[in-house]
Design a binder for these strands. Sequence first.
RNA 1: GCCCUCGUAGCUCAGUGGAUAGAGCACCGGCCUCCGGAGCCGGGUGCGCAGGUUCGAGUCCUGCCGAGGGCGCCA
Length: 536
Amino acid sequence: MGIQEELREAVSAGLATLGIELPGSEVHLERPQRLEHGDWSSNVALSQAKQAGTNPRQLAEELAAALRSAPPRFVETIETAGPGFVNFRLGPGWLHEILREVVTAGEEGYAASDLGGGERVQIEFVSANPTGPVHVGNGWFGSYGDSLARVMGRAGWQVSREYYVNDTGGQMRSLGESLLARRRGEAPPEGGYQGEYVLELASAYEGPEDVLEAGRWASERILADIKTTLARIDIHFDEWYSQASIEESGRVADTIELLRQKGHVYEEDGAVWLRSTDFGDSRDRVLVKSNGDATYLAGDIAYHRDKFLTRGFDRVIDVLGADHHGQVASLKAGVAALGVDPARLEVRLGQLVSLVGERMSKRSGHFVSLDFLIDELGPDVTRLMSLLSSIDQATTLDIDAAKRESMENPVYYVQYAYARIASIGRVAAERGVERCPLDQVDLTLLVHPRELDLLRQLAELPRVVAEAATERAPYKVTNWARALAGSFHGFYHDCYVMGEDVPPRLTQARLLLVEAARIGLAISLRLLGVHAPEEM
RNA sequence: GCCCUCGUAGCUCAGUGGAUAGAGCACCGGCCUCCGGAGCCGGGUGCGCAGGUUCGAGUCCUGCCGAGGGCGCCA
């Protein structure tokens, strides 16, 4: 049982002596923002006072008194403060226990959990149309989706990463027309693809003057480039799922038939409609156009039928740009019509990324490619920039500013901490200082405020990873990594590991602390997809 | 017109209904005899506006203002 659970149980027991029944699992505990408020704090007196028929301050006082008579482990003082908080100040022992835990669990085990209970979740992200290079926005949500997958994986979900490849007729034809036009030395048709890349592809194309075949050929080349680009920022997929394959296999028609059998479909004006209003949509939607073609929605429903009913994912998370907001209700309705609980489909809409003075559009050819951004900033900066804040936050990226600031960038701040740790290791090796086994190190020597601050930070990582997973918010890991790096730099400055006046036993304890910091940083950087460099 | 998301320091952003709202950047001062100065220490009244809910609101509700996005037999 960790210290947090022990405190919860103690509070629960203390409340019981006052005639208030509240299970330990429901006791709210938090780490106060200010150190003067102790190491742990509970607001139960505030939340329970009303039911108990007393005022919060009085209840807090009574609870504190009850707890003082049988203080939990490591607790040194119990105080009441503010409107009725009960604050616990702990001795450094609990932090030494954390240190032991971090080093024992190591890079693979620390902050890993079974929170997801092995639930099979598919995360679909990027899914950019293979009609042109991926742009900055794709990379932004790509980093998000990939790090979310890493975070949820560490928190006990069984995660699969998927890219939906939109390689169906209409777009392939348009791409093919643009390609063939370029090969003939003409401008692409109205509404075609104007980008430079089409010109390059056209000069390499040696196939027949067939629009569809030219389009398919081009999209394959483009998709290969997309894979290469995403791999530069360490994004890889378990599955590249072809939309055309669903159509060609007849599963779209099949799905529409299934919906018809379930009575959710009707015909009007020569088209086939889904009665999506029965499932919360604002209007009914067309599944088959009057010209006989299936709509995008029909394909998307068939695709999600495959996700849920054929492949059997417990949960599906679609990461989309906010510009896809309009299709969410229809897709959820379609899923519900199939008999799948729509709550199992989670759509994360990311606010759009804009660039200073740029308007991105693939068709017009005006966009900043992800490759360009990586060339400018490097893979680590590119990746971390997009994981600096919530995807609910609309951002305007200023590439020039990012370059100017690159030496002051948070990435370097964090990586520098890692490099310093590695450097300590090298110096220790040079001086022949070897690390003792864990059970021979006297951790009680670690009492410097900087040391304890670093340990407090390390203690947070399991909670941060769990929160990042359940809230689908990998940027929380970024915040933690920055905070840990800050704690480490402070420690590094004030606490020499192998300084002249540092006794060997303290050196040993600090070496272990440094190793724990390294483990924490390595874990967080790996979750973020950023390198942990030995040197810079 | 209707719907969704977002408005926090000069800038980029944190902030499970809790205590004196925090970081980084930029700006101004300090700090190298020892493990990397890409570092450390100090310098700060800003929650778009107005109501409401309650012991307590940056956080929840309503309205307004502002920004972005959506409302196709496009994908």
